[in-house]
Design a protein around this nucleic acid. Structure first.
Length: 687
DNA sequence: AGCAATTCTCTTTTT
DNA sequence: GAGAATTGCT
């Protein structure tokens, strides 16, 4: 069995560290708690919260003060809320939510910052127009001409945007109808022309916004933050995540009163996963805490996390001590998650001063191995792991890949992933980043319009077939109650008859029934799935085309031709996709990206390290890590850290069994790999 | 040939 | 939205 008996000496030690932490809370000595993977970091944080509440609840209530706990995600916030139970003196939230709630009432100060930001942005764009070589031709025009050009473009704004997504020659054609000859030169390079006009329009929008703020127009009196949007829209008074923190920092820096207010209201601030927070958030904490010292007020800031588990681009990682000075440091070296073999390997991977030790005395009995092979060996490797560890739905194997595409491939919906990836919506611009949340988001609200439609369709499909109480979750409660048993049975029969090899067949079948049968409840169900004003085959096709493709398709192709790749997605792929997202069926083998496993733990883990992560062909995320392994701090590069952190997170998910497959050339790095993993074998000899 | 314009390609994740 | 790769122009 294993991992059941504690070593009493270590348990005492662990307790002693926790006691020291409590003491720091009591004496307002701010701390950083370095806790590696599986060490019970969140447990320590929750214990601190409880300790502070127990000791100070009355006092806090009397002074109308709260303990603040900041997490990186909403999921983590809910998790901690659940663990401490409802409390009137603790507020748990993400940094954005907390900062916004602290600053949103300072409406006039925020408005002033917003005005300043608008002005700075305008200045910046003007600066680019004057300096960037791209705009040389524009620069040569005199003021009057510049103004005239702008007015012409302004008058033809609609035509400009209509032509915008055409290819270069098409765009040139449409534009030369509008633009007088003297400005034709600007159009010689379409990309530069677009960039110029976009910038001119942006300046205009910002200036107009400034005027409206000045005029105190209704919608222009307060700055809004809505967590739903990922981008600033400064011109309509809407800011996004980064700007919330930016404004927060500026307010705190500018107004001592703001600092005072935070200190008075929130004498305790605990931050979970500090390595993921942004620089500006930590600088804010530093400012506030230093000010508290200055005016002799009590304030405690506690950071909980692990610099090596920073796997996001904008997290501070190991830079905490530069940004927030004077913190008392604690290391937690005990591991409560894994067997010794895993812990030893994870220690070697991170290769820093933190060396974990199991808290259990019966911690031997796990396994950690490494093989090398080629792309073609992956499948066999996975099967070998599943077989060796006797994996089943009760004891599943968890496979970790770098990219979502690989996850989609092995989960059985690669064709679907590629079909969506190939649509205009996700191919153009930054769309490919959107694909992962709109197609693979665990939360239904993240899904794009079309994936959400397919999700509802497949929910119905599997509910009718596998649900214990079919339709209970699909029919509105009233209908479910009023429908008779035999009616329900026929309805289910009809719904079950909807089937087909691919999306096209499914849709055709559905709407054939829809038109033939005059069943009110059936229609209601289908209406709900497609969520359109009018439900028909053509309406659905058009909706999909409109959502996934640019709107200039009508001339050349019909909607149906346009969305051919989507229509041809096989039903089996849809089902696999649906199961992957909902984890409805407990699988024998589950697939994840490295990133998505953060914070989780699995009995059996297989990791595939390949060439599929990074820019350019054949780039290998881990190559630099292996190459620079063991070198001094001065010699290592940023990509060493990126590789190390991701590999550490991946490796430390395992509780008992871990196996790694390295899929790339390894002539130069074999010795380093063997330093970490011990002997590495060819997968073909491994069986 | 040499340069400029156009098109293609690119990882993960949260707020 | 940046940098590489490809196509196009003179």
């Amino acid at each position: 069995m294993g991992l059941t008996e504690y070593s009493s000496e270590d348990l005492e030690q662990e307790k002693a560290i926790q006691e020291q932490l409590f003491q720091c809370c009591d004496t307002f000595e701010s701390v950083v708690f370095h806790a590696g993977a599986g060490s019970g970091k969140t447990y320590a944080l929750v214990e601190c919260l409880k300790h502070i509440v127990n000791k100070n609840r009355e006092k806090l209530i009397e002074h109308n003060q709260k303990i603040v706990c900041i997490t990186y995600t909403n999921v983590a916030a809910n998790h901690i809320k659940h663990q401490i139970g409802a409390s009137d003196v603790v507020v748990v939230s993400t940094i954005h939510e907390r900062i916004w709630s602290m600053i949103k009432e300072q409406k006039s100060a925020l408005l002033a910052l917003h005005v300043e930001k608008l002005k700075n942005e305008i200045k910046d764009i003007r600066n680019q127009l004057a300096k960037k070589p791209d705009f040389q031709k524009y620069k040569k025009l005199d003021q009057v001409k510049k103004q005239e050009f702008f007015l012409i473009m302004q008058e033809n704004r609609e035509a400009y945007y209509e032509a915008y997504s055409n290819n270069a020659s098409g765009f040139k054609n449409s534009m030369s109808e509008i633009i007088p000859l003297e400005y034709k030169d600007l159009l010689s390079n379409v990309t530069k022309f677009k960039s110029l006009v976009d910038k001119l329009f942006k300046i205009e929008r910002y200036e107009r916004c400034l005027e409206r703020i000045e005029a105190k127009e209704k919608e222009y009196r307060v700055v809004q933050y809505n967590a739903k949007y990922n981008r600033d829209r400064l011109d309509i008074m809407r800011i996004s995540h980064d700007t919330v923190l930016e404004y927060g920092y500026q307010l705190i820096e500018k107004y001592p009163k703001m600092r005072q207010m935070i200190i008075d209201q929130y004498p305790y601030i605990l931050i979970d996963e500090y390595q993921d927070t942004t620089e500006v958030a930590v600088k804010m904490m530093d400012l506030v805490e230093k000010y508290a010292k200055e005016i002799n007020h009590d304030m405690f800031v506690g950071y909980f996390g692990d610099s090596v588990q920073n796997i996001y681009d904008d997290g501070i990682g190991g830079r905490l001590n530069e940004l927030h000075t004077g913190l008392k440091e604690f290391d937690k070296i005990y591991n409560r998650r894994s067997y010794k073999e895993i812990i030893d390997l994870a220690n070697k991977v991170r290769n820093d001063r933190i060396e974990q030790k199991s808290i259990y005395s019966d911690c031997e009995g796990g396994s950690a191995m490494c093989y090398y092979g080629t792309e073609a060996d992956i499948k066999e490797f996975i099967d070998m792991c599943a077989e060796n560890w006797d994996c089943s739905t009760e004891n599943p194997l968890h496979c970790l890949f770098a990219t979502n595409q690989k996850v989609a491939e092995y989960s059985g919906f690669l064709k679907m992933y590629i079909a969506f990836n190939g649509t205009d919506r996700y191919k153009k611009g930054l769309g490919y980043k959107q694909l992962n949340s709109e197609l693979l988001g665990q939360d239904t609200r993240q899904l794009g319009r079309v994936p959400a439609m397919f999700d509802r369709l497949m929910r119905l499909y599997s509910e009718v077939r596998n649900g214990r109480e079919p339709l209970r979750n699909i029919l509105p409660t009233d209908d479910f109650r009023s429908i008779s048993f035999s009616e329900l049975r026929t309805l289910i029969q009809v719904l079950k008859s909807i089937d087909g090899e691919n999306i096209e067949e499914l849709l055709k079948k559905i709407f054939k029934q829809y038109e033939e049968k005059n069943d009110k409840v059936f229609k209601k169900i289908i209406d709900k799935v497609f969520d359109l004003e009018e439900a028909s085959y053509n309406a659905v096709i058009t909706e999909i085309a409109k959502n996934l493709y640019r709107d200039d398709w009508e001339e050349s192709k019909t909607a149906e031709e346009m969305i051919r790749p989507i229509l041809e997605i096989e039903k089996q792929e849809l089902l696999n996709w649906f199961d992957y997202r909902n984890h409805a069926e407990k699988e024998k083998i589950c697939y994840h990206t490295f990133h998505s496993t953060k914070g989780l733990e699995f009995e059996n883990v297989a990791i595939i390290l390949g060439q599929d992560f990074g820019k350019g062909k054949g780039k290998n995320l881990f190559e630099t890590y292996f190459k620079e392994y063991g070198k001094s701090i001065e010699e290592i590069s940023d990509s060493y850290e990126t590789g190390r952190n991701i590999l550490y997170v991946a490796v430390s998910r395992a509780i008992k069994n871990l196996c790694i497959l390295y899929v790339d050339h390894m002539e130069d790095i074999q010795d380093k790999i063997e330093m970490i993993f011990g002997k590495i074998e060819d997968i073909k000899d491994g069986k």
